[in-house]
Amino acid sequence: MGVMEQVKTLSGDAEFPCYIARPDGEASAAIIVIQEIFGVNKGIKAKCDHWASLGYLAIAPDLFWRINEGTDLDADVQEEFQTALDLMGKFDQDKGIRDIEASIHLAQTEIGSHKVGCVGYCLGGRLAFMTACRTDIRASVGYYGVGIDGLLGEKHAIAHEVMLHIPAADGFVPADAQAAMHAGLDDHPKVLLHDYEGLDHGFAAEFGDRRNDTAARLADRRTEEFFAEHLA
């Protein structure tokens, strides 16, 4: 099990909370786990604990710290879902990327190398793509990232490998957005897209009604193999 720890911002003038899970032995690589709009909840913490069980240092920054303390919401509770949407409307994504970059720097220092990847879900899937474009992250994975079709103008800045998991029946990423992602990224030498027919947003959530266990296991296996290759 991991613990919440305070991490300095890039500017060094403030601290923000991160859930950090460490492996039993020495970690040779690290994974930044990027939250959904529901915060660093039990599902995100479970994903960190899983990565730690595989030998990685895992860090999940609380990206909503500037607008709400200790966000921990349940997607299956309608009132909490609405709260999450409201927080998303207040969230500064550019500042979020800077907090992810601070987490990357912490991971690099702790493991003593640049073998740091990131994996994000929903909002985090979008931020994982942005992280690939804007930082020196060595491998990035996004699950059902929202609005990536509007970020394709940044794809020229992708220097390291990216994998995106796209559920074809995603209620938050319509078919035309998915088509634009394929048109813009299928020929990119660093990007690999996987489609999941008939599946909706959130299919790889650790807990709750959204999860499709078979598809989640397939996507997670692909992600584990991806990091094993590119963070070796």
Score class of each variant (00 low, 15 high):
M4N: 11
Q6D: 10
K8W: 07
T9I: 02
T9P: 01
G12F: 02
D13M: 00
E15Q: 10
D24M: 06
A27L: 05
V33Q: 09
I34Q: 09
F38D: 08
G43R: 12
I44E: 07
K45C: 13
D49L: 02
G55Q: 11
T71A: 10
D74I: 01
F81N: 13
Q82I: 11
T83V: 13
R98E: 15
D99G: 08
L106H: 12
T109K: 15
H114G: 06
H114R: 14
C118Y: 11
A132H: 12
R134T: 13
A139S: 14
A139Q: 14
G142C: 10
G150K: 15
H160V: 01
D170E: 11
G171M: 05
V173G: 02
D176M: 02
D176Q: 13
M181W: 05
A183P: 01
D187I: 00
P189T: 03
L192A: 11
L193C: 08
H194V: 03
L199I: 03
D200T: 05
H201K: 04
G202S: 06
F203D: 06
F203C: 03
F203H: 06
A204Y: 06
A204K: 01
A205W: 09
A205L: 03
E206I: 01
F207L: 01
D209W: 09
R211F: 05
D213F: 03
T214C: 05
R217C: 06
L218H: 14
F227L: 00
